[in-house]
Design a protein around this nucleic acid. Sequence first.
DNA 1: TTTAGGG
DNA 2: CCCTAAA
Length: 358
Amino acid sequence: MSRDLQVKRKKLADHESLKTSNSRVSEIELCSSDERDKAGAFAMQKRSRRPPRRYIEELAESKSKFYSGKCGVACKRSKNSFLHVRSDKNNRQKETQEETLLCQDKSYDVGCIQVPFGLPVEAGQLEENNSSMNSEDCKDHRLLRSSEKLEIEYSPAKSQEEISEDECVLRRSTQKGSKQIKHYTSWTSSEVMKLIEGVSQCGVGRWSEMKRLLFSSCSHRTAVDIKDKWRNLLKASCTQLQKERKIKRDISKQASDHVPESVLQRVRELAVIYPYPRRKRIFSKIPRYRDRTGQLQCLESTFCIQGICCNNNSEDCKDHRLPGSSEKLEIEYSPAKSREKISEDESVSRRNTQKGSK
DNA sequence: TTTAGGG
DNA sequence: CCCTAAA
């Protein structure tokens, strides 16, 4: 037992004593030791958080019209951990209240989602539990911007009745227990598609908005769940790419096996548009390139930025070229400045370099 | 309350 | 899916 483990155990024990409920201390035993070792040096440190993209964006645009008060308003909430525990309980109570309707039929108000390249779905890829999917609502299965119909298989894993039963069990336990452990319900393909549509519409990071817009009928999917699922999809789409390069077919237990490649493809595309997790300060930098005369020119932000669009894979993104140009570009990045300001600065720096001064 | 991120 | 810091 490492010291960190002991620290963690104490921390968790303190935490559990506040909850007055069925303990999950067994989790401690499940923690992998090598992960602990890695994080060992930071175990005692307070976790620091990188400012979110929107915060950075709004900070950069603080003078502009879009500065909404949401992030600007200082939060006066106490950081007392007692309150955190309580607030979590409140959340769960709220969820329980939301779920008072027993075995309600789920109807999805979202239509079909289309995917650009219309990649065929391989048979057997859809092994997720699709039984709660309402086929009436989705006449045919298309992904975003694709006219090609997807073949979606419905697995006989669970019947509608079984799902309802599960949810009843969940509710039964929530009614009597003080602490409610959320039942794991695998994401259906319709939910995944709703998520994809949500990201295409709202972008990444607006999970609560997405929850309101698209998942209002799914009481068991919170904004956090949606966010987690997106993270998992991203992970899945990356591992899928790597796998394809190495082995054509590899039966593994990874989650990516359960998501159709066409969906993962769409996830990758959305990841280009809405990078997540955030990397550096991509929105505060403007990609530039040197033209034939050696002058720096601005590149639109939709262009390849820091390898995100292609996951640093030169196969996916052949090279950096301007549309309609065969000339390869060397991309440079500059701090966020207006177009005018950049050219102004450039002329100044060029003048300086000519003089030999720094 | 919401989001990000580690677990 | 859980937990919690940060906003």
